[in-house]
């Protein structure tokens, strides 16, 4: 018989299960298969009731984040060959409620993301006829790294502060706020600061750095948050020294 590998997958169907449990599946082992391929094999050939999110299979869409042998990872980015000879344990992302099997409820994140206003808030609104808001390649380079976020939520699963305080705005949303704050066309820093510079914003972060370690797109949210701490502190000092002048 050709080589196989065992997946231990967390199952939870809220309408029938009182609590989550693990189910084992034996799938063919292929050198060039990722965990997502193994899950697709299960879904297509062994058990059509298994639910999980995926779309692009190439680390772009950010849908297939899961906990694989204890680590938050994109299942399309995790080769079976790295787990050869072991049981691969697949669970939903930590710190989120389970919708069904490996599918998490991400409403809390969507709300946090919206709260930091992750869109361009121009300094001065121009009519369409006035043309584009121009930007040089150098000005774009300043924030480019932070545009790479695919909202896969691996950073939320890795962050111990999210585990301790679910109200923490969290790494991805704060990194995206930083991305717009750094944009030369943007004037929304103050509008974002109400959330970003609040106790539940950047100040809940203790710089553990797990978010940046697990980020599959090398966004480095931890750096974004520390840089925001500096700019928020400068803003705070300005407010202190010139009361009323700011805002």
């Amino acid at each position: 018989m050709s080589e196989t590998i065992t997946l231990e997958v967390l199952r939870y169907h809220p309408e029938t299960d009182s609590e989550p449990h693990f189910q084992r599946y034996v799938v063919p082992y292929r050198d060039d298969w990722v965990v997502l391929d193994a899950l697709n094999h299960i879904k297509d050939n062994l058990d059509a009731t298994l639910s999980y999110r995926w779309s692009c299979h190439m680390a772009v869409c950010g849908s297939c984040g899961m906990t694989i042998n204890g680590e938050p990872k994109l299942s399309c980015h995790s080769f079976l060959r790295d787990y050869r000879g072991k049981v691969v344990r697949v669970e939903p992302l930590d710190h989120f409620p389970i919708e069904r099997d490996l599918v998490i409820v991400m409403d809390s994140f969507m709300e946090k993301l919206g709260s930091v206003k992750p869109w361009l808030i121009p300094k001065v609104e121009k009519p369409l006829s006035a043309g584009e808001y121009l930007q040089s390649p150098g000005q774009m380079q300043v924030f480019h790294q932070y545009t790479q976020c695919i909202n896969c939520l691996l950073c939320y699963a890795a962050c111990p502060q999210i585990g301790l305080n679910e109200d923490f705005v969290g790494p991805a949303a704060l990194a995206l706020a930083h991305r717009y704050n750094l944009d030369s066309r943007d004037g929304g820093r103050d509008a974002r600061a109400e959330v970003v510079a609040s106790n539940e914003g950047i100040w809940e972060c203790t710089f553990v750095g797990a978010c940046s370690e697990v980020c599959p797109k090398h966004v480095d949210p931890a750096a974004a948050i520390q840089q925001t701490k500096i700019s928020a502190s400068v803003g705070w000092l300005k407010d202190l020294l010139t009361p009323g002048a700011h805002r």
Binding site: A193, E194, S233
Partner: peptide, 15 residues
């Protein structure tokens, strides 16, 4: 939400 006074603790921490 209101802006935090954490910079009071954090600025000397960063320094």
């Amino acid at each position: 939400m209101a802006r935090s006074n954490k910079p009071m603790l954090w600025l000397p921490f960063a320094g």
